[in-house]
């Protein structure tokens, strides 16, 4: 079975995000970029499936700027077999919207015919949490989101989902789209031999135009603001004072 893993280049999770002075978005110039952490979990899961003999090829796909090559190389160094880069913009500040990404992925999937798509549940930059679901609708495939456990059993996948009330286990028919959550696994480091091998693994360079997909934006960002800073707290001397303060604040 072939597994397709979409990976997104996002601002590194350790970087302190700064809003651009004109409020048009987040400042991404000279900022460390990395693979979306949820996508790393998806790559790891694909490798584990291959190690368990349940997958035989892992294809990583990234859609965005040319620099997403680095993100794909990381996926290859972790263990993906080959990569496809779809260059869709040359501006690092431009985010390709979920619907456009889903349409491009559908075109890739039509050509590649994978048996499973493993994707991060969302990207940590804009937290859209939409691409996997949209892709499912476009393909008419089943979907299982927020996976914290995954088992492939012949023609179906058994997926444990992290939902508000606890854990839900569902069985979906293959081919399917699974979006992965934080607790599915702990991604491995790229080993040194694999880092050295990554350069020799194939990477197809495509553009959005190659797939004849309209990627023009449908959303307009009207403002981006810093989260409001929390006001300083106070230390109360007793439980009575606490209750009094809470009453004053109208909290109880």
């Amino acid at each position: 079975m072939k597994v397709l893993v979409p990976v997104k280049r996002v601002i590194d999770y350790n970087v302190k995000v700064r809003v651009k002075a004109d409020g048009s978005g987040v400042d991404l110039a000279n900022v460390k970029m990395s693979m979306n952490p949820f996508d790393e979990i998806a790559v790891e899961q694909a490798i584990r499936l291959r190690e368990a003999g349940k997958a035989d090829e892992i294809v990583a796909v990234s859609i965005g700027v040319k620099q997403a090559q680095e993100t794909l190389r990381t996926a290859l160094a972790m263990g993906a077999d080959r990569a496809i880069l779809i260059e869709a913009t040359d501006d690092v500040q431009t985010d390709i919207e979920p619907l456009a990404v889903a349409k491009l992925l559908k075109a890739v999937i039509d050509a590649e015919q994978p048996g499973l798509v493993l994707a991060g549940k969302q990207a940590i930059d804009n937290d859209m949490n939409a691409t996997g679901q949209m892709l499912s609708a476009l393909l008419g495939w089943s979907q299982a989101t927020y996976a914290s456990e995954l088992d492939i059993d012949g023609d179906s996948a058994i997926v444990t989902r992290e939902v508000d009330g606890g854990l839900q286990t569902i069985k979906v028919s293959m081919p399917t789209i699974v979006t992965v959550d934080l607790r599915l696994n702990e991604p491995r480091y790229a080993s040194l031999p694999n880092i050295m091998k990554a350069k020799r693994k194939p990477m197809d360079m495509k553009t959005a135009a190659d797939y004849d997909v309209d990627i023009s934006p449908r959303l307009e960002i009207t403002a981006t603001t810093e989260p409001s800073t929390r006001a300083a707290g106070i230390i109360v001397a007793s439980v009575d004072e606490l209750i009094e303060k809470l009453k004053d604040a109208g909290a109880i």
Binding site: S34, Q69, E70, R73, A77, L192, I195, M196, A198
Partner: peptide, 10 residues
């Protein structure tokens, strides 16, 4: 190079 960057990051 990409390899050197990955070595550093790892």
């Amino acid at each position: 190079t990409e390899e050197q960057q990955m070595i550093t990051d790892t």
